[in-house]
Write a protein that binds this DNA or RNA. Structure first.
Length: 264
DNA sequence: AGTAACCTGTGC
DNA sequence: GCACAGGTTACT
């Protein structure tokens, strides 16, 4: 589920539920999460107050009054559930439960347990390695071209590199290149600045469209394929030209594209 | 640049 | 049984 639009939506839910609230208890319910959030760290945030919730790329940061923060990444299958008091019934795949002073509970719900929750010390910037935000003006063709002098590889793989641009995931990398009409297999360093401008525009278009729809049609499974132009549509007709959508594997991940209208 | 690893679930 | 899954890091 969680690409940037879903993370933005999840962050907005947590913001509403947690800002201004004080943490009264933290339970780490799966050994996998204990690696990033050991028991002593979990204990140490008790009594601290959530003052803000930020999102950068696919990362979330719950800023605490002490100056520290909880850094959250959903990876493949994480999500927040906010459970209201007094009936605290944890979802099936509850991995971390953060109780708040109004009796409610923030639950990290993650079947695969790959999510990461870590305590960040005051003054540490957990986002320092991230590139410009995908939806921001700072993500632009000239800037991308400069980065490409050091980063080679097919454009699809390059878009997934969070150091170059923050927030593009596997679905929207395919979607963006379909909008840009560019073949995902092309070496990124072979694209000229006007083609890179199309890639940048494609990324923004795909993400903004999804951001507008996040919250609706979320996690319903069946409705998902309809939202996409190419992702998970192997063999189905391209919405632009009718040619069958192809699936290939790049760097171990599925890529979907239209061979006819995505060139070079 | 590809592959394994981290985990569990789903669908063929 | 096996392939595959929307992410990321650390290895060949």
């Amino acid at each position: 589920m969680p690409e940037l639009p879903e993370v933005e939506y999840a962050a907005s839910i947590v913001r509403r539920a947690a800002v201004g609230r004080t943490i009264t208890r933290v339970d780490v319910l799966h050994p996998s999460q204990r690696r990033s959030l050991p028991d002593d760290a979990a204990r140490s945030v008790i009594g601290d107050t959530v003052v803000d919730v930020e999102r950068r790329g696919k990362h979330q940061l719950l800023r605490l009054a002490s100056g520290r923060a909880l850094h959250v990444h959903f990876r493949m299958t994480g999500d927040w559930q906010v459970v209201a008091a007094p009936a605290i019934i944890l979802p099936r795949h509850a991995r971390v439960a953060i109780r708040l002073d109004d009796g409610s509970c923030l639950v990290l719900d993650d079947p695969r347990a790959l999510s990461v929750v870590a305590l960040v010390a005051r003054g540490v910037d957990p986002f320092r390695t991230l590139g410009p935000e995908a939806t921001d003006r700072a993500f632009n063709a000239p800037g991308l071209q400069r980065q490409l002098t050091r980063r080679r590889g097919p454009i699809k793989a390059v878009l997934l590199d969070q150091r170059l641009v923050a927030g593009v995931g596997n679905i929207y990398a395919s979607e963006a290149l379909w909008y840009a009409r560019i073949d995902p297999r092309v070496g990124a360093d072979r694209l000229d600045v006007s083609q890179l401008a199309r890639v940048v525009a494609g990324v923004k278009r795909a993400l903004r469209r999804a951001l507008a729809g996040a919250g609706r049609a979320y996690g319903e499974g069946a409705g998902d394929r309809r939202r996409f132009n190419v992702y998970d549509r192997a063999g189905l007709p391209c919405r632009r030209c009718g040619a069958p959508i192809r699936r290939i594997v790049q760097a171990g991940r599925s890529t979907y594209f239209c061979r006819k209208c995505q060139k070079r």
